[in-house]
Each structure stands twice: as structure tokens, then as C-alpha cells.
Simulated scan of single mutants.
Amino acid sequence: MSQLRTVQVLGGGSAGSSAHVGSLAAGLVARGVQVTVCAPAGLDRSYEFSATGARFTPVPRRSDPAAVAALRAACAGADVVHAHGLHAAVRAALALGGRQVPLVVTWHTRTHAEGARRRLVHLLERRAARAASVVLGASSDLVDRARRRGARDARLAPVAVP
């Protein structure tokens, strides 16, 4: 049996989601899972993902073709990809386009927007929710929101920050 491979994708790396990914990476590595964390370069220095035994791949928080290609390369051979946050989810969905790799998305917080940006956020949420195999919401309102955006499977998964 081959070793399970997972990629954890962070967007901007808020303190809560970064600490959550660090905790997940440590727990998964301890259980024999090969973990790659993809996030902006400075986050490995701040949260020491590499110290957990995970591989760290710097991927900028952009959706341009070069950043998506870097993420696509990092996800090659993954058994599951887990994106944390809306922007990370959209970028992961783009990177996985055409691949049959399960995408887990965790929404830690609600994105607030007004005016034209509100419509864009709605579209991004819909894209992320529909691309995901499962959306995990840190609160029941996020689970409801994911369902309204078209998630096939949305579940409550409160996140405890270590």
C-alpha cells in the first residue's frame, strides 16, 4: 500500500487558518501521511510547517497563470487537496481542473463585501462550493452559505486553534 499524499493550500494565511494547517500537518505526518503545505513564502518562517515534517512549497496568493501552474505542480500525485479559505479554494479548483482529485474546502470565516465586490465574492463562493467534494464550515452559518452556493456536501466542522 502506498503512502497517502495530501496537499494543504493556504491563501493569505490568517493566524487562525495557518495555525489550523500547522496542527493538521503535524497530526497527518504523525500518522504516516505525506503532507505538502502550499502558501505564501513568509508563512513557513512564521508557522514552521516544515518543522512538522511537511514539505513546504511557496505559492503566491495570486490567481495568475504562473501561481496556478505552481499550485498545479505541487498537487501532482496528491490523493486529496484541502484548501483553507475562499481564495485558496478557488485557486485549488483552478489548479485541479480536469483532475479527479478530491477537493476538501474549509471556510473558516465569512468574507464581507459590499457593492460590486459583493457580487464577485458570491461568484467565487459558488465556484469554490461547486468544485469541492466537501465543504467544511467552521460555523453553521458558513455551512448554510455553502449549501446555498451549490455545495454537494457541506458539513459543520468547528475549528479549534491550538
Rank of each mutant, 00 (worst) to 15 (best):
G11N: 02
A70M: 07
V35Q: 05
V35N: 09
E48Q: 14
D44P: 02
A30W: 14
G27K: 04
T36N: 06
H20P: 12
L43E: 02
V33F: 05
L28S: 06
T57K: 15
T36W: 02
G22T: 11
F56M: 02
A54D: 00
A30R: 15
L28C: 10
Q34E: 15
A25T: 05
L71S: 07
A15N: 14
T57F: 14
E48G: 15
A66Y: 00
A51E: 11
A25K: 04
Q34Y: 15
A66K: 08
L71P: 08
D64H: 06
G16Q: 11
Q34T: 15
G32A: 09
D44C: 07
L24C: 04
A15F: 15
G13S: 05
P65I: 02
S14T: 15
G53D: 03
T52C: 00
L28R: 08
V33Q: 03
A26N: 13
S18M: 07
V35E: 12
S14E: 13
D64W: 01
C38W: 10
A67V: 00
A54R: 02
A41V: 06
G13M: 00
V29E: 01
A70W: 08
C38T: 08
S50F: 08
R61Q: 09
A19G: 13
C38Q: 05
T57Y: 14
G53P: 04
L43D: 00
S23M: 11
S46D: 12
A19H: 12
G27C: 08
C38Y: 05
H20Q: 10
R55W: 12
